[in-house]
Structure formats: C-alpha cells, structure tokens
Amino acid sequence: MKYWLILSIFLAGHSCAAEDNEAIDWLKKMAASNNNVSYVGTFIYQHGGRLETSHLTHHVSPMGDVFEKLETLDGPPREIIRANDKVTAYLPDSQTVIVEKRNPHHLPVTLPENLQELNAQYELKKTHSERIVGFECQWIFIAPKDKLRYGRKFCIEFNTGLPLRAQVVNEKMEVIESFGFYQLQIDQDVAAESQDSLYAVVARNENWRIDRSALNITEKPFDTGWTIKPSPPGFYKKMEVKRTVAGRLSAIPHLVYSDGLAAISVFIEPNQRKKMTPPLISKGAIHIYKKNYQTFTIVALGEVPAKTVMMFANSVQYKKSSEH
C-alpha cells in the first residue's frame, strides 16, 4: 500500500514534469515563430479597459531577415518599423523619429534559452485549446509563484507557433493587458512597398527631429558604479550599460534585471528636478516608478506589479569605492 502511494506520487510528479516540458516546447515554438513565419494582421491592444487597434506586417525573408511594421489605427497615427535589430518609431504628431539600434548579442533576455530559467519563478501549464480568428491554438499559462510578478497566458497557433492571444494577468487572475489578433493571414507574401514607412519621406523632407538611441556596444559589461541591493527575489542582473536614451543629452546608466520572463529597466540620471507627480504610472502591464535619490532621478520600469518596480527603485545604491 505504502509503495503504491509512493509510486502514485512519483507518477503524479512525473506527469507534472512532462506537462511542464510540453509547455516549454510550446513556448519554444512560439519564440521561434518570430523568426520564421510571415503574416499580416490587425490586432487589438487592450489595457486598463481601453482598446486600441493596430495593423501589423511581419515578414521573414528567405535569408532569415525579419522585417516588421506596426501602424496604429486608433488615435494619432504612429508607426514602428523593425528591421532585424533596428527599430524606428515615427511619431507624426510630434514630428519625431526615434531610432533604436541594438546589437543582437546584447539582448540580455533571449528566448528560448531563458525558458528553463522560468521554472524557478513560474509554473508552466498547458491548458485548453481554442479556435481564434480561424486558427486552432493551444493555451499555455505561465503562473507566477509569488506576487512580485504577473502571470502570462498565450494561445499558440498549432502549426506556426504564432501567439494569437497574449495576456498578462494579475494575482486575482484579472487580465490587465491583452494582445489579440482579430484578423490574420499567415504566410502572406508581403509586398515590398508595404515594408516602406509611410513617413520616411516626409520626415526627411520636413526635417523631423531624429533621436538616436544606441547601446554602448562593448563586449564587456560596463560598471556604472550603481547596484540594486538587495535585488527583489528571483530577479537577476542581465545587463549593465551606460547608454544614450533618445531625448537625453548624455549617456546614463541603465541596469536590466529579469526573472526570465519579465524585465525591469532601471535608469539613473542626473536629477531632473521635474515635478515628481505622479511618481507611479502604469500602462497596461507596465509600471513606471520615479524617485529622487540624492542628486539623481531614478526611473524603474517593467512589466511587473507596482510594488516590484518600487522595490527596485528603492534598492538603488551607489557602490562604495571599497566594493569596486
């Protein structure tokens, strides 16, 4: 009898692990879809009871180059273009172009390597399947093990691995942010002209303000002298650089922490002496918390609950010289 009990516990544990592995396989498939599936669609971004629709073009060339274009359809027109590692945002309402170029080797959090790391802070569950915008998809639930992070739900298309729905849920299991296609064509041949920006020409002709933001491309990590101590449990430092941020006049320290799924950025810049209200801002799953620390303004932000970004901002310290 006792042996049966042990065996059944073992089997239960085993089947649970098998389910985890299956869930990880789905997530890997989803992560890979980014680099091997072309599609055109319209999706809804839902946050805080608001809806915004955007048009999305995703094209993977035979050479493996990824080209993406996002155009907002509601509110002021805005366009984001990603060509491999270069992201360009056109903001016609303020006549601004923001350019972000990253070295792919510096992406601190990449999938699927980090998927294994997820297990420490999250529980992976394969749940039901569903039909969304004409495609069958499998729901995977990534449930947090504590209240410092949010849960995620993805409905992953059977064949291509494309996430048809992506949701962020809080501890009450309320969906606080959701991305979902409502119209989608997979494996669409994207015409060359649709890859062009609607605004590139006018931006050039009318001399829009261009902000370039670039990571400090150095192979070795940069010791900014700043640290997060103690860092909230389960988060580890992934990157420490001094970087230029569009709109800032000099390079500022930027620390990135992650638990494998959520990332938190901490920026430290000379005191802006700006009005600090409101210090806490949220947008969908993202919380942004600002505080003054000595002569600096600290900005912590990430797709985590408010208290987590606050913990980060409050733990920022300048390392003593003896610790260097």
């Binding site: 992560a31 980014n34 995703h58 903001l91 923001i98």
Partner: peptide
Amino acid sequence: EYLLAHQGLSPSTAIQGVAAYVRSVS
C-alpha cells in the same frame, strides 16, 4: 523614450516582436 529603450530588452518583445512596442506608442 524610456519605454522604447526598455522594450527592446524585454522578453515580451522576444515573444511578441514589434507588437509589444505598441505599449510605447499607445
């Protein structure tokens, strides 16, 4: 600008690609 700087480093971008950037321009 902070959001844009952060977004490129977030796993949500690795998962969802440019769609995640909608947060920055919402």
